[in-house]
Amino acid sequence: MSNAPATPISVPAGAHTATVAAGCFWGVEHMYRKQFGKAGLYDARVGYIGGDTNDPSYRAVCSGRTGHAEALRITYDPTRITYTSLLTFFYKMHDPTTHNQQGPDRGSQYRSAIFFHDAEQEKTAREVTKKVDEQWWKGGVVTEILPAGQWWDAEQYHQLYLEGNPGGYECPSHYLRSFAELQ
């Protein structure tokens, strides 16, 4: 079974990609679309990254045996959204201090991670993480910063899940926290 998207999106030249994992991907996707949907977000797809199983299924990833994280791949207009703003939002919308856990969801598939696509993203991820760890989370951040490897789209049923299932499960740790501006 292939997890390729049913309909590939048309991405304009110059679009950038960001990949984050912050627990159950349904809520992560929903929150990013709500925050950036009218501000330069081209697409947000849920899927799997960071493991060692080819073409993983949701059931396999949920078992915790594939090494993959439930993640979000964001395609955006860098003239309207900065990578820093995507990461700042990431650190406000989930709890990056719990190892392999978000709310009641436990296992490495729910870990907090930033998967960078180039050296500049890695540098920015490390800088933002250092600031939020010092200023917001007081030394507790356990977020992994890793190179983006092979991406696997989740099954079509999981794309835009909370749009099609408005009463569906949302992790209680996914909400926008109020923090002072980063210095």
Rank of each mutant, 00 (worst) to 15 (best):
G103K: 10
T124E: 13
W26K: 04
S85C: 02
E29H: 03
R106L: 14
S85W: 02
N54R: 15
L41G: 05
H174G: 05
I74Q: 05
A15F: 12
P166Q: 10
V141S: 07
T19H: 08
A119I: 07
A60H: 15
P8H: 13
T75P: 02
T129F: 01
G168T: 09
P5Q: 14
G47D: 03
G40D: 08
Y161Q: 10
Y32V: 04
H68Q: 09
V46C: 03
F90V: 05
Y175W: 13
V142T: 13
I49Y: 02
W151L: 00
G103M: 08
H174F: 01
F25W: 00
T17N: 07
A180Y: 04
W136M: 08
V142G: 05
G40L: 04
G40A: 06
P166L: 10
Q102T: 14
P104D: 06
A148C: 00
K38V: 01
K123M: 08
P5R: 15
H68A: 04
L86N: 07
P104S: 01
Q156Y: 11
A13E: 14
R45Y: 03
A125G: 09
S85K: 08
A125K: 13
D43C: 00
V132N: 01
H99E: 12
Y76V: 11
Y157M: 03
T79Q: 15
E170R: 11
A4H: 13
T53H: 03
G67T: 13
A60L: 14
F115N: 05
R111T: 05
A15K: 04
G51L: 10
F90I: 05
Q102G: 08
E155M: 00
S63Y: 09
E181T: 12
T88I: 12
Q150C: 01
Q101C: 11
D105Y: 07
Y83I: 12
P8L: 10
S2W: 11
I9H: 08
G140K: 15
P166F: 11
A113R: 00
P56A: 08
A13H: 13
M1V: 14
I81A: 00
L87A: 12
P8Q: 09
R80E: 12
W137D: 08
E155L: 05
G149N: 07
S178H: 15
V141L: 02
R59P: 01
L87H: 01
Q135H: 15
T75F: 10
P96A: 10
A119N: 10
Y48N: 03
E144C: 02
T88V: 15
E155C: 06
P12F: 09
P166S: 05
D55Y: 07
T84H: 07
E181C: 02
F36C: 04
K130F: 14
W26Q: 01
P78Q: 15
G107S: 09
E70P: 11
W136D: 02
N100M: 14
